[in-house]
Design a protein around this nucleic acid. Structure first.
Lengths: 157, 157
DNA sequence: TGAATTGTGGGGAAAAGTGGGGGCTACGGC
DNA sequence: GCCGTAGCCCCCACTTTTCCCCACAATTCA
């Protein structure tokens, strides 16, 4: 229950045979404090994972997307992918949500999932994909590049 | 049932032997909340897919089209294509609409369809065409360009 | 260790989707 | 003008899926 509905931390979860995911109780509390439980899930266009937003946060994102220049074909693609896949979810009485088949397929999800808090949203990864990414991010080369990156000058952790 | 009649999300549907499409229940609810169920279908001029509007949203689009400069031949072409193909639809008692043969041919629709919510309208794609497009949009080049575009506009999802 | 909360599985009622028959209408031919 | 034909549309009945809820298992916390 971080204040301001700020989502962080990493959680495990599982998909059952029907494609339902039980939200870890901590996350459920965070969501409840923002949106009363209404959620929106969509795809991430850069990585093969899903993005889970509390409804108000999603609406802010969608508004930004709709204000992109409509002439630009890349904007349209982005709108198609993000808005086109955005699905409203309501947790059931036990706090589970049904992830749509098409989205599960996109992210290659099977039984074991990893949920990663990212500020206004939670990323949903298949465990295998997550570990593969972690391995890559932590490889020496990538870390060195991060340290050098200009964007982070002045950034101190 | 996204608020404000905002259409989003991806759905599967099928065409039966008579060319009828059963609207997924969720979409039907969204439509009902905007237009009482009256719909207009027309073609998309950029992609081989159809566009399905709740009547009030279509009327707004048509008004914009009619206000284009009539001297400009490109405007007239656009008007002919969009307004010319626009067909009013009323779902039957079980929530099905008959898609006109010409429009089905234009979009190359056969049995399996994909419906993609896009704000004020829903795009209707043949499953094969949709998957081909998805593959292209998600190919390495396109994704890299998207990433650039996002940075350029300061968009953060 | 026990009690409460969280997570998992599954059955069943209700809703949604699908196929198809039959009647009405519109149109064309005789 | 009358009849035949074809297409559309309305409705009924069957099948499939969805989702809601209950009961048990596992985990956590005191």
């Amino acid at each position: 229950m971080p204040p301001g509905g700020m989502l962080r931390g990493i959680n495990s979860a599982t998909l059952d045979a029907k494609g339902r995911m039980a939200l870890p109780a901590r996350l459920r509390e965070s969501f409840a404090s923002v949106s009363g439980g209404s959620l929106v899930v969509t795809i991430d266009t850069k990585d093969r994972c899903l993005l889970l937003y509390p409804l108000p946060h999603w609406e802010a994102v969608q508004e930004k997307l709709e204000n992109l220049p409509n002439l630009n074909p890349r904007s349209r693609t982005l709108q198609r992918l993000l808005i086109g896949h955005a699905t409203d979810l309501e947790p059931d009485a036990t706090g589970r949500v049904l992830l749509p088949q098409k989205l599960r397929d996109y992210a290659g999800l099977d039984k074991k999932l990893v949920l990663v808090g990212q500020g206004n949203k939670v990323e949903i990864w298949g465990e295998a994909q997550w570990e593969a990414q972690m391995g890559q991010w932590l490889s020496d080369d990538s870390v060195a590049q991060l340290a050098d990156a200009e964007e982070f000058t002045g950034l101190s952790v």
